[in-house]
Amino acid sequence: MNDYAEINQLVSRERLYRQRHADELADCYYPDATVATSWQAGSLDSFLHGEPAEVDPRFTIFGSISSPVIHQNGKRAFVELPTETHMRMMVHGVLTEIESYRRLIYRVEKRDQDWKIASMISINESDNLYPVIPGTSLKIDPKDLEGLRPSYQFLSYVRKAAGGEISSDLLGTDRPKEVDKIYGEAQNWVDHKE
């Protein structure tokens, strides 16, 4: 495979393994990798062995990805990967599903013979929350959504309802200057200008 095909397979595997295979997931990353998501930011270990408060162990998280856009320069690349994630959970006694749309920004490197992930950052784009069973009513007071960021308002709502916490300063498309900064830093890293 050429570098583009290897990088494409790497980020696709990472998303597939995220839900099913912890050992294989770890192998997609370098041991010193960092990961920033909605529920944690830090070392690879915190990403591999933690879960957000709203995750209900009775339900499997599933998702889909779009084709990645790869920006490569030699042995470094950053990858933009649009994703959609679905999680089922109970909200106010109603079986619901949240769908979250995100863009993942990976920094990948070829340090020896293989491409692996050096870091991953999640950018929130939008989300929806709805009852799973047709005809079921999910009542949410619109006042409870006031002040929640539009790029991840329902994720914030369900995490707080589950007793967890979520930062109001996560990356999101509703703050384009912060997103532009991430892209600029990624490009500088690829160009070895960091």
Results as ranks from 00 to 15, higher is better:
N2Y: 04
Y4T: 15
Y4I: 14
E6Q: 14
I7C: 07
N8S: 11
N8K: 12
Q9W: 01
R13S: 10
E14T: 14
Y17Q: 07
R18P: 02
R18S: 14
Q19V: 08
H21A: 13
H21G: 02
L25D: 02
A26N: 01
A26G: 10
A26P: 00
C28H: 07
C28A: 05
Y29D: 07
Y30T: 13
P31Q: 00
A36T: 15
A36Y: 09
G42H: 06
S46K: 06
F47V: 04
H49Y: 14
G50A: 10
G50V: 04
P52C: 02
P52H: 04
E54M: 01
V55M: 02
I61G: 06
F62R: 09
S64W: 02
S67C: 05
V69C: 11
V69M: 10
V69N: 11
Q72L: 14
N73V: 13
N73F: 13
K75Q: 15
R76P: 12
A77Q: 08
E80N: 13
E80Y: 08
L81C: 12
P82H: 07
T83Q: 11
T83D: 08
M87L: 03
M87G: 10
R88N: 05
M89T: 03
V91D: 00
G93T: 09
L95H: 08
T96G: 15
E97S: 15
I98A: 08
S100K: 09
R102W: 01
R102L: 03
R103F: 04
R103H: 10
L104V: 13
Y106Q: 06
R107P: 13
V108M: 04
E109P: 10
Q113D: 11
Q113I: 06
K116C: 09
A118H: 11
I121F: 01
I121R: 15
N124D: 04
E125G: 09
N128T: 13
L129N: 01
Y130H: 11
V132S: 12
V132E: 04
G135E: 07
T136V: 12
P142C: 00
L145E: 00
E146L: 08
G147L: 03
G147A: 04
G147S: 05
L148C: 09
P150S: 08
S151V: 12
Y152F: 07
Q153V: 03
Q153H: 08
L155P: 00
S156M: 03
K160Y: 04
A162P: 00
G163K: 05
E165F: 02
S168C: 07
D169P: 06
L171V: 08
G172T: 12
G172S: 12
D174G: 15
D174N: 14
R175Q: 15
R175P: 07
R175G: 09
V179E: 05
D180I: 01
D180L: 02
D180H: 05
K181N: 07
I182M: 13
Y183K: 11
Q187D: 11
V190K: 05
V190N: 09
D191C: 09
H192Q: 15
E194S: 15
E194T: 15
